[in-house]
Design a protein around this nucleic acid. Structure first.
Lengths: 208, 208, 208, 208
DNA sequence: TATGAATGAGTGTTCATTCAT
DNA sequence: CATGAATGAACACTCATTCAT
């Protein structure tokens, strides 16, 4: 009998409705950010685009900053998942292969929604709330630092935390240039190879 | 016409007054951006700080975007001058020395007004695509590309425009991290040396 | 009909549940008014505090004004009961004693929940003209008028309805100052004595 | 020649324009408070009624509270002037005459704009800013206390500060009842006489 | 009958920009 | 040319109330 399924918890429909609303709001936010810019992303416009009343938006997000932060979190989570999936297995491979996998994973992660990534990374105010960008960077830094330490006798740099921090910034900047700003006048494949070379030469003085 | 001296004056005092007013407005803008943040930089507040009426501000700048753009231009010009002065002479030095000078020049340029640079680079909305940041980057890219080409037999990369573009982005990102965000947990001297190593190993496979 | 006991039950549990819900809502309203102020007393917050859904709140009260009015009524009823209990027996006492008892009863009534009384009396918007404050004042006025008339040869005022009305306002204002606003810079005991003197001198020209 | 009068200071027209705008805003505020109540007095509505843009309103008042406070101040000033003018001369008269003048002055002051007075006294939130009501009460209390002290051997009360405070509250409440709420069922003249009697009997045990 | 997600008119306030003087 | 009073669209956010479930 439809409409009276005792297996489903009573609260479930309400929860799924809520979740759908939240997703619609986040989707609308991303859409407006990407297509009209941060300045155009007013809460009223977001609500309208989401097909939801402004009151509903504020039922789920206490203020605009929290909304942006949630979107940031969602996006960061997607990137993190991609990175983990693609780079995780390569952590124990020989260094050149590990670096190649890592760079590839980062580039793929940046391809999830490059325009959104650009706005969240560059324009959205950092001081708002729960900066997930620094979170992901921090995790990455730690992971890379560990990876370097496990091979400290194969590599040239001695201040490993510094090397790790620099690698994170460096790769991030180059990948942004390649994937997001497209200011490198070269195919993304070519750039990927060149980033690998930058990193391997920095770490080992050679590529192979 | 009485007193119409075609040499230069007559108009000059007015022009120098104008220039002084423009400078006062730009100074006030920079001061407020640095000390109170982008959100506090309203045109009325800028005019007040500059000791000028809001009407006068709009006599010199058609809108707020033009004001920010002018400040950006002025700041970029100061950086460009610093870079030219410090790195120019080293262009013909041996590669390691040239790289060292270049990196040092870039770091000094970022030390002119790091907080202003941060806001202009990351927070202030760029009004149109033809902005001064890409200008300075473009010039830098050309200069470096020329430098690489004049030593194409000493270096490993073969796609020199790509290498130049990557070096610009890479150094900029690392210098920002060191000078502006201070997120590298190391002294600026140490970072400067490490950036030099990244670049030289990328170019030559070795530092010396 | 099985189990249909005509005595009282069947309906009673539902009614008592209703009453309990209403009481919970009124309690929550009073609590929020006293502890967080009128501005914080939103219907949603009241419902939450009462452990009831916002829908249920509107099942029992057609709108917010009715809710406040009900709370006002409940509070007035409590005050009325206190006054009746404390002042009733003294109605037939000699005038000075009667006045003393009356004033004391009024002060005690204002001590039931002074903070709530303050908000209901001063801040909460009165929805319609037929409010309980005028009710209690009206009853009081009549009672006092009767008391004065039964002693019209002992007292100075001749327009007894006017005297009664003035006494009600006068005592109310002074008790508010003493118990609620505490703006008299004197102990409540001292104020009570002084109010008695004001009243007795007005009625008799002397205290004893 | 019209439009070029060098006798008038340059800033004068601007100042008079400003003053007119401020007055218009305060007038509009008072009008809306009186005719539509506190709840209807939104800043946008006030600006509209004043024939002024909402921006202008905020040029002269930093927030709504300051606007209400300014209105309160203006009204209190008018009342204070009336009281001073009518009661000032009587301060040195014999007590009965002084009391009569005082009460009369207070009643006249409350007749300036009774409805506005009612809203400012009862509904407008006290916690906002510069509570002029307490100011005027405080001044009154001090004035009356001084008056009582100069005649301490003619009067019955011994705690003069308390007596003064009570007289202020008492007269205020009775005048409100007479002039503003009109809940005394008597002519204002009759009430005025009766208030005088309350006060004189309290102070002297007799009226003459 | 109870629930709570959803509504949307309305609030106080800001600020880039204009224009009469 | 300079002034600064004036503008008003726009913003982030609230809350009494409704209604599908």
């Amino acid at each position: 009998m439809p409409g009276n399924n005792p297996a489903k918890p009573r609260k479930s429909p309400a929860q799924s409705r809520s979740r759908a609303t939240v997703e619609a709001i986040l989707d609308a936010t991303a859409h407006i950010l990407v297509n009209h810019g941060l300045a155009a992303a007013s809460t009223n416009r977001i609500a309208e685009k989401a097909g939801v009343s402004i009151g509903s938006l504020y039922q789920y997000f206490p203020n605009k900053g929290a909304l942006i932060a949630a979107l940031r979190r969602r996006h960061a989570e997607a990137m993190r998942a991609t990175i983990l999936q693609l780079a995780g297995p390569a952590a124990s491979a020989p260094l050149p292969q590990a670096v190649r996998s890592f760079i590839h994973a980062l580039m793929q992660a940046h391809r999830i929604d490059p325009q959104l990534h650009r706005i969240l990374a560059l324009e959205a105010p950092r001081s708002d709330f729960a900066d997930s960008r620094s979170d992901i960077d921090h995790d990455l830094r730690n992971a890379i630092c560990a990876l370097l330490e496990s091979r400290r006798n194969e590599i040239l740099p001695t201040d490993l935390p510094l090397a790790a921090a620099m690698l994170v910034r460096l790769t991030d900047a180059l990948i942004h240039a390649a994937v997001i700003d497209n200011t490198l006048d070269a195919t993304q494949q070519a750039v990927e190879g060149e980033i690998v070379r930058v990193v391997l030469r920095y770490l080992q003085g050679k590529v192979a």
